[in-house]
Write a protein that binds this DNA or RNA. Structure first.
Length: 297
DNA sequence: CACTTGACCTGTCCGC
DNA sequence: TGCGGACAGGTCAAGT
């Protein structure tokens, strides 16, 4: 999926568009994508107004005036795309993509109405998801912190609750596995996925197959800095688009122009010119420089 | 509890 | 051109 930078980009886009809009209709073709009862839809969704759009880890929350929120996980191929009147600060839409919506990947179709002044034109918000792993759930806003995922998920990597020391401590719960598996474990820290795991490990010159217990504190310190650097750069670039990811206006992200190893097998390492290789670590496709990322640490 | 693997889905690409 | 298998940015349940 969309990892933290992609979800954050979607959040930022939706937060310039949705607040103040009223949800007037919803249609879904797949109960796994939208597993809510008609009763809850009628009581807590239809007719309610969007108050705010938030993110925690890779989860989006659209808070509603009803006291409920649309809690959304994009998983691997989810998209949330707004189609309608342009709003201030939302940027220019990708017309060639949005003109084709809804399409066969559309799982949920929200009808929206602006409620402020003259801006009452009809608009739509599409939840598209080719692989149907993602979901949109109506959950009472005050209960969101109690759902299993929120109870388990670790600190935000760009927030005040994570530091090099805290990362070192939290990694100890996965000390007998590889650092890549540990970074992908959302209970250690939130928001890292396959792209940014490979990118930050390259930055810290750590091989992804290195066991956590073999990492020194200075190595973890450097890794923390690289995580912050990579995620911040990716947010600036609007995320990474390898295949399906687009933002709220249907536009692709440009981080892949800056990627050092991810999906660059066969190319030269930007640090030492050694050919980048692809292997399998933690059951995931993994990209490394065999020269400057040493397994032993 | 820590760790690994398979399952959830659809689409695409690669080799035969 | 068609077919089979591997693979794709994530998480969860079930296994050891």
């Amino acid at each position: 999926m969309p990892e933290l930078p992609e979800v954050e980009t979607v959040r930022a886009g939706l937060s310039t568009i949705l607040p103040g809009c009223k949800i007037v209709s919803v249609v879904s073709d797949n109960p796994k994508s939208f597993p809510n009862t008609q009763t809850d839809v009628d009581k807590f969704l239809i007719g309610s107004e969007v108050i705010a759009v938030r993110r925690r880890a890779k989860v989006l929350m659209i808070d509603l005036s009803s006291g409920y929120s649309l809690v959304i996980h994009l998983k691997m191929t989810g998209q949330l795309v707004y189609v309608g009147q342009q709003r201030f600060g939302s940027g220019h839409p990708n017309d060639s993509l949005i003109s084709k919506l809804p399409d066969k990947s559309t799982r949920v179709d929200f009808g929206l109405e602006g409620i402020s002044g003259a801006d009452n034109q009809q608009a739509r918000l599409f939840f598209n998801d080719q692989r149907k792993f993602g979901w949109v759930k109506l959950i009472s806003t005050i209960d969101i912190p109690n759902i299993d995922f929120m109870q388990r998920v670790g600190p935000e990597p760009l927030g005040p609750d994570l530091s090099a020391d805290i990362l070192f401590t939290r990694l100890q719960r996965r000390k007998n596995t590889t650092i890549k598996a540990a970074l992908l474990d959302q209970s250690v820290l939130a928001g890292i996925g396959n792209i940014y795991a490979d990118e930050s490990l390259w930055g810290a010159k750590i091989h992804p197959a290195t066991l956590v217990k073999d990492l020194t504190k200075p190595q973890v310190s450097l890794l923390y800095k690289e995580i912050v650097f990579v995620l911040s750069l990716a947010i600036e670039q609007g995320g990474s688009s390898n295949s399906t990811y687009v933002d709220a206006m249907g536009k692709k992200g440009s981080y892949m122009n800056f990627a050092r190893v991810f999906r660059r097998e066969g190319q030269a390492c930007p640090r030492c010119q050694t050919t980048i290789v692809k292997s399998r670590v933690a059951t995931r496709g993994t990209h490394t420089c065999p020269s400057c990322q040493s397994t032993s640490g």
